[in-house]
């Protein structure tokens, strides 16, 4: 099924679009997003991957190589954006795996999807924080991370989920 559909080419195109939009949004709205005390980090690429898992579970016949594409997106993220290889390249596939497990326990719909995405963003930001602390890229305290980064980031990304859930579902259905 996957091989024959438009998704085979459409999925990576939208994946990279989301990846580059993350950077462009951060650049265009840098005053609003990165001025102290808030640091909102856009994770549209994670949204696209998570939605892939959610809508893949919609009809059971559709298996996409999401883990592989997540690793590719993570590798590009690491090399192009941060310059430090080995963080997102593991976190993104982990998120896909986690979402698949969660989606197998709770039937994904809009609200449970929101819950799953909440957990995913927490994992992405939390592991990213731990990794960057371990590599001494940042020296911020854990409490500062929770208040200044994780809170605003969750707020921003959940808002994006609410806004983009139905458009992305439409895109997936169009590509299928």
């Amino acid at each position: 099924m996957y091989r024959l559909s438009k998704l085979r080419f459409g999925f990576p195109v939208f994946l990279f679009l989301a990846l580059f939009l993350d950077g462009s949004i951060s650049q265009v709205f840098s005053v609003q997003m990165f001025r102290y005390p808030t640091a909102m980090v856009s994770h549209l690429v994670v949204l696209w991957l998570v939605c892939g898992v959610l809508f893949e579970a919609d009809d059971g016949t559709f298996d996409m190589p999401l883990g592989r594409w997540a690793a590719v997106a993570g590798a590009v993220f690491d090399l192009y954006y941060t310059g430090i290889f080995g963080i997102a390249v593991f976190i993104f596939p982990l998120v896909v795996y986690l979402t698949r497990r969660l989606a197998s326990w709770i039937r994904p719909n809009f609200l449970s999807g929101l819950l799953i995405y909440f957990i995913d963003i927490t994992v992405v930001e939390g592991l990213g924080y731990l990794a960057s602390r371990a590599m001494r890229l940042n020296t911020g305290a854990g409490s500062a991370f929770l208040v200044n980064t994780l809170g605003p980031t969750l707020a921003f990304n959940l808002a994006m989920f609410v806004i983009l859930y139905f458009p992305i579902r439409w895109v997936y259905n169009w590509l299928k």
């Binding site: 650049q27 990165f34 941060t82």
Partner: peptide, 13 residues
């Protein structure tokens, strides 16, 4: 061109 979407790496390309 773009900014690193990360809260601890203030970095632009």
């Amino acid at each position: 061109i773009t900014r690193t979407p990360s809260s601890w790496q203030s970095q632009v390309v």
